[in-house]
Write a protein that binds this DNA or RNA. Structure first.
Lengths: 198, 198
DNA sequence: CGGTTGAGTAAGTATCTGCTTACAGTATTA
DNA sequence: TAATACTGTAAGCAGATACTTACTCAACCG
């Protein structure tokens, strides 16, 4: 019984390349030929790893989420005097969307009539929002809350903040400094119910 | 010299249909054949009205912006005791994104390497943000401001709020009531610097 | 070592897509 | 009414695209 199956390893090896392609080009413009080119293989090899192009895309969505979670986890593991939420805000204000997290979401949002992509996307968003909500709740337990909206609500607003920050960055509508200011000011307002600088 | 040129009228007549198609399907999936079908004409007729598919899309972006502005203008013309910003927030909390405003933006964001689409999109976003900023400033002049972020900053946050509200709606992640609550709570927090319900 | 099976190459196919061309009909004005 | 510019129809083209097929090679384990 010869040659062990390396499908799983190969998938893991190519997935970052695939995800990056989808993030850069969107769903439609990412042709299977282009994917193969970037991966340095032929098309049919991709088709042995995933049943079709859609599956490649859904795998990419999952990868992007895992990637973000891994970064956050590293961030949260560090013990500092700032709360987790504070550290997350500080981090995102500087490195937000560097990998192209949101671009893949936008690509997916253009395919929302496909039930599988839609489900993958909804699942990702739900987890994302829930994660943020937990951090906000933890922050408040530690630091108190003045007159801020409920953690659930605030979490959605933070996600929105991240989204618009990324769009503005993509379209070069705000400078890095402005984006950072946006995050810290509104972020804190949502966290604690008052704005620091004013 | 026979038959007056009706190109302008025809464009105006078909543009809503074109815009809706792009909003529903995105850029790539909206084929010129599909556009022609929905418009009830042949493809080459569209090509007499616009030089290429890209021009149709850019026209659609403009249309969507004009549409929003028209709705807001009607809203602002009414003289009521609520400030313009309050009325805008109240309106958006209920009808937000009904036409598909954001879907066309997402479609465009997938083509951000095309300089023309990118410019059209950036222009629209800039106007959008500026409009919101003016309303916020006007509101504060009338009602005062407690400890809220600068109008410029708050305006970006409001745009982000609108964006995430639309995504969440699209993916059925929040109920209409929740979305409305999100708008009124965070909206007021951004406007005036304190949350009403807490 | 030898055969089974996974990994790679190359070429192809049916369909679609943006866009064009050639031509016929018709409304308008001089 | 006659010339003409506009409006519509039908067909098609070159290139792209998702996915497949047929085949070769070599790695592995008994």
């Amino acid at each position: 019984m010869p040659r062990p199956n390396k499908t799983v390893e190969k998938r893991r090896e190519l997935l970052p390349v695939v995800a990056r392609a989808f993030a850069e080009l969107g769903f439609r413009r990412t042709t299977t030929a282009e994917l193969a080119r970037r991966c340095g293989v032929r098309e049919n090899i991709l088709y042995r790893l995933w049943p079709d192009k859609k599956a490649m895309f859904i795998a990419a969505i999952g990868y992007v989420y895992d990637q973000s979670v891994a970064i956050w986890a590293r961030l949260l593991a560090r013990q500092e005097q700032a709360t987790a939420a504070e550290r997350l805000l500080a981090y995102e204000s500087q490195h937000h969307g560097e990998f192209g997290h949101y671009r893949i979401v936008f690509a997916g949002l253009n395919e929302t009539d496909d039930p599988d992509i839609r489900a993958a996307l909804a699942d990702m968003y739900r987890r994302f929002q829930r994660f943020v909500e937990e951090q906000i709740a933890a922050h408040r337990a530690q630091r108190g809350r003045h007159a801020a909206p409920a953690a659930h609500t605030a979490a959605w607003a933070v996600v929105g903040l991240g989204t618009v920050a990324n769009i503005a960055r993509e379209l070069e509508l705000v400078s890095d400094a402005e984006r950072s200011h946006l995050f810290s000011t509104v972020g804190r307002l949502l966290l604690e119910g008052y704005a620091p600088g004013s």
